[in-house]
Computed example of a mutant assay.
Amino acid sequence: MSTNPDWPQGHERLVLSETDSTMAEALRRLPDLKAPTWILALRQTAGRGRRGRAWVDPSGNFAATLLQRLDEPPQQLALRSFVAALALHEALMGLTGLEAGFALKWPNDVLLNGGKLSGILLESPGQGVLSLGIGVNLRASPPADPAAAFPPVNLRTETGLTIQPEALLDHLAPAFATWDQRLRTYGFDPIRTAFLQRVTRLGQTLVARTMTEEVQGTFETIDATGSLVLRTAQGPRAIPAADIFFP
């Protein structure tokens, strides 16, 4: 357990010196899960991102997964990606004391000075189970991907600040618990409003690439289900999942 007095009550905290992937570690620990558990790895050897992509994780970066049981339908579980993004944004601003530079990218990335600082991955390995993986480039950036919309950046290079992974976890966990309680109490609307206040490129033209098509339009809003809403020449389009790029 954490000695941090702000640590959310009833949540376990597990820090590993090394593992293959915190998402894989969460899956292995699922049969014995008795309480929501944050799993932090100080070194991750086989991290992964969305759609099975590799997540390169140099030493000193942040890699953690929250594993919990939630008696909710899948569409409600999926809204935790927005909760996680808001919590991470809040934790990073609190730790760094920086008011400018941080922004959100739909559906759940945190950007710093226009570059990709983090990635968030949601999976449901069983009914009512949520694995929420979060990776943050605290000290080093992975190699740039020419196909990516935003170049990778890291906190130390961009700000000159060195943040320890354990310190970020101790700020992230209570922030997540607070935003999550808002979702449970008031529904998605306040989460959606807060996300839109922090999201990048709102009102600008972007391209959404799904598994089957490419849609270009103006980023108009996020709807009540968390879908991206684009204003296109054919009218508004709600897109539940996509990679976004900018022409």
Rank of each mutant, 00 (worst) to 15 (best):
P152L: 06
A24K: 08
P31I: 12
R139W: 07
S21W: 03
P151S: 14
L67A: 15
G128Q: 05
W38C: 05
Q76A: 10
A149R: 05
F195I: 00
L98N: 06
D109M: 06
L30C: 09
L98G: 02
D71E: 13
Q9W: 02
A238T: 11
V56L: 10
W55N: 07
D170T: 10
R43N: 08
R139Q: 14
A241R: 06
L104K: 03
I134M: 12
L111G: 08
L161A: 07
N154P: 08
L117Q: 00
T157S: 14
I222C: 06
E90K: 08
T225Y: 14
V136L: 01
R139D: 06
R29F: 05
L79Q: 15
R69S: 13
V136M: 07
S81L: 08
T225M: 02
L161G: 05
F62Q: 08
M23G: 04
M1E: 12
Q234H: 07
A85L: 00
L183I: 00
N154Q: 09
R28K: 13
L40A: 01
D180N: 15
L14N: 03
L16H: 03
L42E: 14
G101S: 07
A103M: 07
M23N: 15
L79A: 03
K116R: 13
G94P: 04
L202Q: 12
P31M: 09
S81Y: 07
L130I: 15
R231E: 03
N113R: 12
Q181E: 14
A177K: 09
T162H: 03
R28T: 13
A242K: 12
G52A: 03
R184W: 06
L27H: 15
L132E: 11
H89P: 01
A242F: 02
V229K: 00
S124H: 10
A85N: 00
E18Q: 09
L117S: 03
D145H: 02
E214I: 07
T221L: 04
M93N: 11
A147L: 13
L88M: 07
D109H: 10
D243L: 09
F82H: 03
L112I: 05
A233T: 02
T19Y: 01
F195M: 02
V129Y: 12
L172F: 15
L196C: 13
K34Y: 06
R209E: 14
A173G: 06
Q68S: 10
L138W: 11
A241P: 07
T210K: 05
V207M: 11
N137W: 10
R28V: 10
Q181H: 13
T212R: 11
Q44V: 05
P73R: 08
S141A: 15
V153Y: 04
P174D: 06
V153C: 12
E166V: 15
R182K: 11
Q204K: 14
A46T: 07
L155H: 04
P146S: 11
W179Y: 08
R184A: 13
D170R: 03
P151H: 10
P5N: 01
P73G: 05
A46S: 08
E99G: 14
S21A: 04
M211Q: 15
L70D: 10
G60T: 04
Q204F: 09
S59N: 06
R29N: 06
G49W: 02
L16T: 00
